[in-house]
């Protein structure tokens, strides 16, 4: 790593040396201008758009969190009433707990599965390119479309129960997505299935940067498979772990469409998350103020966990 970095640094310093050399000023200046392609103000339209579409819209939405607006007509500023209502309502508290369970559950299981697959498909297997594509496919497919396929699989008259009946376990057949105990786990299975491929790709990118020589040296020194993974591979792919887990948590906290398609938040709120509650409150039940307040809470939670996650997994504590 150091060996490859050195020439680049020297190359970057070369014009500075050249500038000091007598008679080389003209050439150096023209090169310098060539490197200064672009001006900061070229970004202004983009900044303005991001500001207007993203931050102003979010700010206006945030304002409505402090009102009783129903989504139509006049409204009154009600202060923190909507936020108080969130923490007094057991459905919302349940949604918060489901959100955290699904986010952390899908990150943990999805990343472990993704890492195992990435390690397995890293170098050895001949069909690894085909398998990589197959494992990555769920990330490319529409979450809504695949959720409907999963819904069919978990349906009471669906293939899963038919399989259980066929192997003589018919007494275990149940409406998986409407069972208060099983529904949340069923949703978790679908989320893990859809997030594994993404984690796998990030880990494969990380594994590509692990020098084979170091692994070989560790093996020659007598390190077994687990020791090589624990002391050589894992420290080397730590940035990949940070990226995969952070993105996974952000994605997991705001998951919406698979749950709406699978259970709609049911049975009786058993799989409700903050995102589905935001939609229901704001757009289905005419409580736009309450929905906006929930959205703010969700944004704060995402920010909190994203920052914590970044701090825990950064490779250099001084970063």
């Amino acid at each position: 790593m150091t060996a490859t970095m050195q020439p680049q640094m020297e190359a970057a310093k070369a014009p500075r040396r050249g500038r000091r050399a007598p008679g080389a000023g003209v050439t150096t200046r023209s090169r310098g201008r060539g490197l200064e392609f672009g001006h900061w103000w070229w970004a202004l339209p983009g900044i303005a758009l991001v500001f207007a579409i993203h931050y102003v819209a979010t700010g206006v939405g945030g304002f409505f969190a402090f009102t009783n607006w129903t989504g139509i007509g006049a409204f009154k500023v009600t202060g923190w009433v909507n936020f108080e209502a969130i923490f007094k309502d057991p459905t919302k508290v349940g949604a918060l707990s489901n959100t955290l369970f699904l986010a952390f559950g899908s990150v943990l299981l999805g990343n472990i599965a993704g890492l195992v697959i990435a390690l397995g498909l890293n170098r050895v297997i001949k069909t690894r390119y085909v398998l990589r594509t197959l494992f990555f496919m769920p990330v490319v497919l529409s979450p809504l479309a695949t959720a409907y396929i999963w819904k069919y699989i978990f349906d009471f008259d669906g293939p899963l129960n038919a399989f259980l009946t066929a192997i003589g376990a018919g007494d275990q057949a149940k409406p998986w997505l409407a069972d208060p105990q099983w529904a949340i786990w069923t949703v978790l299975v679908v989320l893990v299935w859809s997030s594994t491929g993404f984690a796998m790709v990030i880990f494969m990118a990380g594994l590509a940067g692990v020098p084979v020589e170091v692994e070989e040296a560790a093996a020659i020194d007598g390190a077994n498979l687990w020791q090589r993974f624990r002391n050589v591979t894992l420290p080397a792919i730590r940035p990949a772990v940070a990226i995969a887990t952070t993105l996974g948590i952000v994605q997991g906290l705001r998951v919406f469409d698979p749950i709406m398609a699978l259970t709609g938040g049911g049975p009786a709120g058993a799989t409700e998350t903050l995102a589905t509650q935001v939609y229901k409150q704001a757009f289905a039940l005419g409580n736009f103020g309450g929905g906006a307040a929930l959205a703010l809470v969700l944004a704060a939670i995402i920010l909190f966990f994203a920052v914590i996650q970044q701090r825990l997994t950064r490779s250099n504590p001084e970063d």
Partner: peptide
């Protein structure tokens, strides 16, 4: 007066059927 009353009834009935409520 609002759609939340009907929503409470509709989701509640599902909860009664599943034994949650």
């Amino acid at each position: 007066p609002n759609s939340a009353v009907y929503d409470a009834l509709a989701t509640g009935v599902q909860g009664i059927i599943t034994g949650q409520k």
